[in-house]
Design a protein around this nucleic acid. Structure first.
Length: 279
DNA sequence: CACCAGGCTCGGC
DNA sequence: GCCGAGCATGGT
């Protein structure tokens, strides 16, 4: 099996549980599966900076290094965040949150999948979102056979647009079924061109996404951050809202972090949702 | 059983 | 422009 070396923050379990992707999962004993487009990766940590991967080096370089954002150094990013927080009332909190989440990275995910997944995400918890996304893949995505089993890919716009609202609603989407259908149709008909949006400014990108029914500030922000890698964009969900209220004395502290605001958001989301559970 | 979840739309001010 | 009800369904 090919091996790769990664000398930076990289925790497969934390990335899988980070709430930005919904199809990644641990199969068994530290082997994780990730999917993007038609590429499927099985990856397992074998040593301190060494990983077994199921793909050839060329695919690793062209697909998975960008996907995991491995061309940036997250240990440095964490250090920058901690430094900016030094002396502030929330300095220690940022230190704890970034340390707890060390290993998380902001993925560069496929645009259509991210859009649809986050439309589904509204008023659902993460396990429920995962289940819905998985069902949609099984219902309308292509099947790929790998040595580790059958994988259903996320459907292409035309594949998803062909599913009836009735079927979508029955797949636990409820009222979101119509939003998903509409969005898939508009992407398929090129009424919104997800590819060309990459050249838009952050604000223009968000405004375009918000033209879709079922896409408001939060979901547009998530798509901008997780699919278009706009790391200065700050999605505010209930957990981040809670952190602002409970931990930052009502102050939105994120703006000062510039293009690291979205990344800090991810650490705090993870920290808030999982760390405080213990108590 | 309640209450909450990576919110949004729509109608009423 | 801001505010709040209503929204379908599953997880905890």
């Amino acid at each position: 099996m090919p091996k790769v070396t990664i000398k930076d923050d990289f925790d497969l379990r934390k990335i899988t549980d980070s709430g930005q992707c919904f199809r990644a999962r641990e199969l068994k004993m530290g082997t994780f599966r990730f999917i993007t487009g038609r590429n499927i990766l099985y990856i397992k940590k074998v040593d301190e900076e060494s990983y077994d991967v199921s793909c050839e080096p060329q695919e690793w370089n062209s697909v998975w290094i960008p996907y995991f954002n491995l061309d940036e150094n997250y240990a440095d990013i964490r250090a920058d965040i901690v430094k900016l927080g030094e002396g502030k009332p929330y300095g220690e909190y940022l230190k704890a949150a970034t340390e707890f989440g060390a290993g998380i990275r902001i993925l560069r995910q496929e645009t259509f999948e991210t859009l649809i997944s986050f439309i589904i995400s509204q008023r659902k918890n993460i396990p429920a979102i995962r289940k819905c996304v998985e069902q949609i893949c099984k219902l309308s995505g292509k099947s790929v056979y790998t040595p580790q089993g059958v994988v259903s890919l996320f459907p292409k716009p035309n594949e998803l647009a062909g599913v009836s609202v009735f079927d979508l609603a029955n797949f636990a989407l409820g009222y979101r079924g119509a939003y998903v259908k509409e969005a898939a149709q508009k992407v398929n008909d090129c009424i919104i061109d997800l590819r060309s949006l990459k050249d838009y400014s952050d604000q223009d990108l968000i405004n375009e996404l918000k033209k879709l029914r079922g896409v408001g500030d939060k979901i547009a922000d998530c798509v901008a951050l997780y699919a278009y890698h706009r790391t200065s964009v700050l999605p505010i969900d209930v957990w981040i809202g809670r952190a602002i209220k409970e931990d930052f004395n009502g102050e939105n502290i994120f703006a000062q972090f510039g293009d690291k605001a979205g990344i800090l958001q991810q650490y705090i989301f993870y920290y808030k949702r999982l760390a405080e559970k213990e108590y």
